[in-house]
């Protein structure tokens, strides 16, 4: 499985852009006004500006530096400095594969992005950053008691904390950080979701406390 979870669908609304890291690539992830997702190499072909600082306008992602517009296929649509110019076909952002399922956004920098099939209904809890590698995050999450009891571990990424089913996807962010994307079974009460949010912060404390 070469796809990487980069964020929760809830946290990337239409016309928004974010930065992610996938298999060592710096990636700009953006959602167009129709809800479509796009993952591009985070480097403007013009002068290398990170496209994740850009803005979505007229169905394009535009670069903050000189405002060049790029179509959904990555091709350059418009160069503001030369409004009459038809940009050459050769100018294009590098496009990667992206998909979303069960509230999670997945990107692959090397082949077609695939989201794991999930049974059941899930709701987003939060994406939480840990200053340690993914193995330590998983270990801490599985070993941090919730309401006095250790979570039960089911299939990969699946846990039950108290009586609530949880889904956890971890992805490295840079060399020293991990972003854990957490979802809970649909219908979990607000109090329950907040309690789980506190619980994963406790897990973070123990994950970060140990030797690096």
């Amino acid at each position: 499985m070469t796809s990487v979870a980069v964020g929760l669908s809830r946290d990337l609304a239409a016309k928004r852009v974010m930065r992610a890291e996938v298999q060592g690539y710096d990636i700009a992830v953006w959602r167009d006004e129709n809800g479509g997702l796009h993952a591009w190499n985070n480097r403007c072909p013009h002068r290398g500006m990170r496209l994740s600082h850009g803005f979505v306008r007229d169905g394009h992602l535009a670069c903050l530096y000189h405002g060049w517009h790029f179509r959904k296929d990555g091709g350059c649509a418009y160069i503001p400095a030369h409004p009459e110019l038809e940009p050459p076909e050769t100018i294009s952002a590098t496009v990667f594969s992206i998909t979303e399922n069960a509230g999670v956004i997945w990107v692959s920098a090397t082949d077609t992005a695939k989201a794991p099939a999930e049974d059941g209904e899930w709701e987003p809890l939060r994406s939480l950053s840990f200053a340690c590698p993914p193995e330590k995050v998983r270990h801490a999450i599985e070993n941090t008691p919730f309401a006095g009891q250790l979570p039960e571990r089911a299939a990969s990424g699946h846990l039950t904390a108290g009586s609530t089913a949880l889904l956890v996807h971890c992805a490295p962010l840079g060399d020293a950080e991990t972003l854990a994307h957490l979802l809970v079974a649909a219908g979990t009460s607000l109090a329950g979701r907040k309690a789980l949010s506190r619980w994963c912060e406790t897990a973070r404390e123990s994950a970060e406390a140990g030797p690096a």
Binding site: G7, L8, D11, L12, A13, R16, M18, R19, A20, R126, S127, S129, L173, E177, L179
Partner: peptide, 10 residues
Amino acid sequence: EHDAYPAIRN
């Protein structure tokens, strides 16, 4: 950077 803070970003 704000990459690790989605609620702050929004």
